[in-house]
Simulated scan of single mutants.
Amino acid sequence: MSKFDILEELQEFQEKIVELQEKWKLEIAPFKINFDQAEIDAGAPILELAELELDISQTQRWIMELIDFVIGFKPSLKWRFINIPDLLTNENIMEWLGKSLITDRKYFKHFAEEHGIEEWIPLFLAESTFHPLLQLIAETAQPEVDRMNIIENCPVCFEPIRMATLDGGGKKVIQCPRCYAHWHAKHLQCSHCGNEDHITIHFLTIEGVPAMQIQVCEQCKCYIKILDTKQFITKLSVTLLDLSSIRLDIIAQDKGYFSIREKKVIH
């Protein structure tokens, strides 16, 4: 199977998961967000300020629906999920929620090792299941996000910035593919370090693909993808936009740019 066939299958797989998530999203109970400005100024992601009441039985059902879908899509994966239903205890699900919202990969790696399952499975199940909740938090927080001056990370879920689209007027809109929060940004500004020097910020293009470009910064050596979705034939979710533009990540990284800014250690 070629890389393009794999990417096409992965995109189809993700499209089906998005359909499931849209259905689950309608079942989530209302919640409030305590917009504590002191907490926000201190760097707390907005998702940590949400007052949530998780319905455990509902979440267990969602996870089982997801497993059934995965096995139906790829029957060869069935044996990898055999022991998962026994692990869906109230305690584990509550812990999965907290750890997935902050993307604690070390926790999920340890959980997988402890229970003898493949490392990707618990994080995949948790992230996919709680993604609709994350979206709703972002939708509720959007008016607050619109007032913020944002660099480097999504203020809702703290996902590193990596993608933008162009609005109807051609202005750059940063899109978080994890929670779907979005906000306007300056055209000539690095979203990682805030650099606005037009000499050290430039754009890489792909021949024959005018709807996609890469903005790179020579000061911090980071990049973001910029997509002109008005030129797309099919309207895609932000998650699928990120996935379908993965070739831009490959090109940028092959040229020595990074999607996350390196933190300098001061001695």
Rank of each mutant, 00 (worst) to 15 (best):
E152C: 07
A252F: 05
S76A: 11
C217W: 01
Y257N: 05
H110G: 06
E8D: 14
T165A: 04
N34Q: 06
F111R: 06
Q11M: 02
Y107T: 09
E152H: 11
K225L: 04
T229G: 02
E22H: 05
T129L: 02
W62D: 01
K23G: 04
M148D: 03
K99Q: 15
D68L: 07
S100P: 07
W24F: 14
I150G: 01
P30K: 12
C179S: 05
I201R: 07
Q11C: 01
S100Y: 01
Q58G: 13
E9N: 11
V145Q: 03
L123E: 11
R61A: 15
A252I: 03
S237Q: 02
H182K: 14
P85N: 10
R61W: 02
W183S: 01
F130M: 11
M64H: 08
F203Y: 14
P143V: 08
E39Y: 02
S2H: 07
I233G: 00
T165H: 04
E159M: 07
E27A: 10
K3G: 05
D55Y: 08
E12Q: 04
P143S: 09
G43Y: 13
V18D: 00
Q213E: 15
F4M: 05
H182C: 11
H267F: 05
I63T: 03
L10E: 13
Q231I: 08
I56C: 00
V238L: 14
I161Y: 00
N92H: 09
W24K: 08
I199N: 12
L101C: 11
G169S: 14
A141T: 15
I67E: 06
S100I: 09
L248G: 13
D146I: 13
D197R: 10
D146N: 13
I82S: 14
T229M: 04
E39L: 10
H187G: 07
C179L: 14
E9T: 00
W96Y: 11
G116V: 05
I82E: 14
E196C: 04
T229I: 14
Q21G: 07
T103I: 09
Q11P: 00
S244M: 11
A164L: 08
I137F: 00
A112K: 04
I71Q: 06
T205Q: 04
I63L: 04
F124G: 06
Q135K: 12
F81K: 09
H267W: 03
E144A: 09
N153T: 12
H198C: 04
G170F: 09
G169R: 14
T129M: 01
I117C: 04
G170S: 08
H187K: 14
E65G: 08
E65P: 02
E39Q: 13
V18F: 01
L134S: 15
R261F: 02
D242R: 05
D55V: 12
I174N: 13
D228C: 12
E15G: 00
D146M: 08
K99E: 15
L26M: 07
H182F: 07
I151F: 00
D228K: 03
Q11I: 01
E119V: 11
N153R: 10
I28M: 12
F158T: 01
E91W: 01
Q14Y: 06
N195M: 12
L227V: 15
S245D: 06
W24S: 05
D197T: 05
